[in-house]
Structures are given as structure tokens and as C-alpha cells.
Amino acid sequence: MATITFIESDGTAHAIEAKCGWSIMENATKNGVPGIVAECGGSQTCGTCRIYVSAEWQTKMDSPTADEVSIIEFAEDRTPGARLSCQIEMKEHLDGLIVRMPEKQYSM
């Protein structure tokens, strides 16, 4: 068991007991965390599951693939640390992970 804390843009925090093996997106949507829309259900086409991850936590994750980067660019999100939460699998060593969420997952 591990925990993830999701912080909304207004500062509201949601701490959940996370399941390892699920993506961070699945952990959010299956626990009803608001702010992760995940329109495409993790197929990396929608860009509506964005989170912001600090540089320190990012060192513990695989770096994003070219496709992930292009989806984030397409969403016109230039916030540092932007990642697609559906592309990051929750693992034991990410216990205590804290991520922030955008005010809106849609650019329009």
C-alpha cells in the first residue's frame, strides 16, 4: 500500500490509498478525485489527465516518451513538470507522492 496526494489548483488536497500496478490516473478516477478527467481512459490521446510533478519526484519516474510530450504540447500546457498521469504506473517507491492538478484539463 502507498499513498498519493492530489492537490487541486485552489489548494484542496485529496490523499488516497493507492494501488500499485495501476496508473496514477486510474488511482485518481477510481477514487473519485476531482480534476482528472481522463477522457480517453488512458490511451494517451486526450491530454485531460495532466498533473504537475516536482523535479524531485520526476527523478524517481521514467521520463516521458515523445508521444506523451507531444500530447502535452497539444494541450498547450507549458507548466513545468507537466505529465500525463495515465502514463505513470504507481509503484511502491513512489509512496508519499504529491502531485498538483491544473485548474482546467481543457484548453478551450
Binding site: T29, V37, A38, E39, C40, G41, S43, T45, C46, M108
Partner: peptide
């Protein structure tokens, strides 16, 4: 408006939406 469920959600969400 875009929060509609016309494309479903979850693992079966419409992959053709874009």
C-alpha cells in the same frame, strides 16, 4: 459542455474521439 459523456469514459472510452 465538454464534460459530456457522449464518448463514454474509462477503459472503453471512444478511442476515435480526437
Amino acid at each position: 459542455a465538454r464534460e459530456h459523456l457522449a464518448f463514454g469514459r474509462g477503459i472503453h472510452a471512444c478511442i476515435g474521439a480526437p
